[in-house]
Lab assay of single mutants.
Amino acid sequence: YETDHQDYCEVCQQGGEIILCDTCPRAYHLVCLDPELEKAPEGKWSCPHCEKE
Score class of each variant (00 low, 15 high):
R26A: 10
Q13H: 04
L20A: 13
Y28N: 06
E38G: 13
C9N: 01
P25Y: 08
K39F: 04
K52F: 05
H49I: 01
H29F: 00
Y28H: 06
T3S: 12
A27P: 05
E53Q: 14
D34R: 07
C21E: 00
E17P: 03
C50R: 01
C21N: 00
P48R: 10
G43C: 07
E17R: 06
C12Y: 00
E10P: 06
H29M: 02
E38W: 07
E38S: 05
E10L: 14
D4Q: 15
E38A: 10
I19L: 13
P35R: 08
Q14K: 08
E36G: 10
H29N: 01
H49N: 13
P48S: 10
E53N: 01
W45G: 08
E10V: 14
L30K: 11
R26E: 09
L30T: 05
E42M: 13
L33C: 04
Q6P: 14
T3Q: 11
L33D: 02
L33M: 14
Q6S: 09
I18S: 12
D22F: 02
C12G: 01
E17D: 06
C47W: 02
P41C: 03
P25S: 08
K39D: 05
T3K: 15
V11G: 15
D7R: 06
E53K: 06
L33T: 13
L30C: 08
Q6G: 04
K39M: 14
Q13R: 13
W45H: 15
K52D: 09
W45Y: 04
H29V: 00
K39G: 11
Y1L: 05
H49D: 15
R26M: 13
E2T: 15
E42W: 04
G15E: 07
Y1M: 15
E36T: 09
K44Q: 09
E10F: 14
L33E: 03
D34L: 06
K44N: 05
I19V: 08
E2K: 15
E36N: 06
Y8S: 10
I19M: 14
E10Q: 11
R26S: 10
S46A: 07
V31Y: 03
Y28F: 04
E51F: 08
V11F: 15
V31W: 02
D4G: 10
G43V: 11
P41M: 07
C47R: 00
W45D: 04
S46P: 07
T3C: 04
E42C: 05
L20D: 13
E42Q: 05
Q14N: 09
C32S: 01
P25A: 13
D4F: 11
Q6H: 04
Q13E: 08
V11H: 15
E51R: 03
K52A: 06
P41Y: 03
L37W: 02
D34S: 12
L20E: 07
C12K: 02
G15K: 13
